[in-house]
């Protein structure tokens, strides 16, 4: 559609073609992620990485096109990306911290087998 340019508005107008293409891509990725979940195509232990990669592609499509970030002010994009940086920091620090104590839990379990029983 041509109205994304002949309109005098201050914000970019997404054309129906882009909206529908993004929607179709999101549906295709959803179907793929459901179909390959638990299939033998993926080596054991890699399920979560495949699923999260697909989820991240979907999330990027939503943020860039549905949320107009691709045409948005840089400041908004920087803020959002920084929030993701802090999420990564939070996640990384928490995971590495919890791993520090696993041997203590193991030792405790060996010393007190009753308390760790199923």
């Amino acid at each position: 559609m041509s109205d994304s340019h002949d309109h005098h508005g201050f914000a970019h107008v997404m054309s129906p073609a882009v909206l529908l293409a993004v929607f179709a891509a999101l549906i295709v990725f959803t179907v793929i992620t459901v179909l390959i979940a638990g299939s033998s195509l993926i080596p054991p232990g890699f399920d979560i990485y495949v699923a999260l990669t697909i989820a991240t592609i979907k999330a990027a499509l939503v943020v860039l096109f549905f949320m107009h970030m691709i045409h948005d002010k840089g400041l908004n994009a920087i803020m959002f990306v920084f929030s993701l940086v802090f999420v990564a920091l939070f996640l990384g620090a928490a995971i590495s911290d919890t791993e520090q104590y696993q041997h203590l839990i193991k030792d405790f379990g060996q010393a007190n087998p009753d308390s760790m029983a199923k």
Partner: peptide, 18 residues
């Protein structure tokens, strides 16, 4: 859209654990 975005992550993390 952010609510949709969170679901996009929740769905594989909760439902598609292989």
């Amino acid at each position: 859209h952010i609510v949709d975005l969170i679901w996009i992550y929740l769905f594989p993390l909760l439902y598609l654990i292989g």
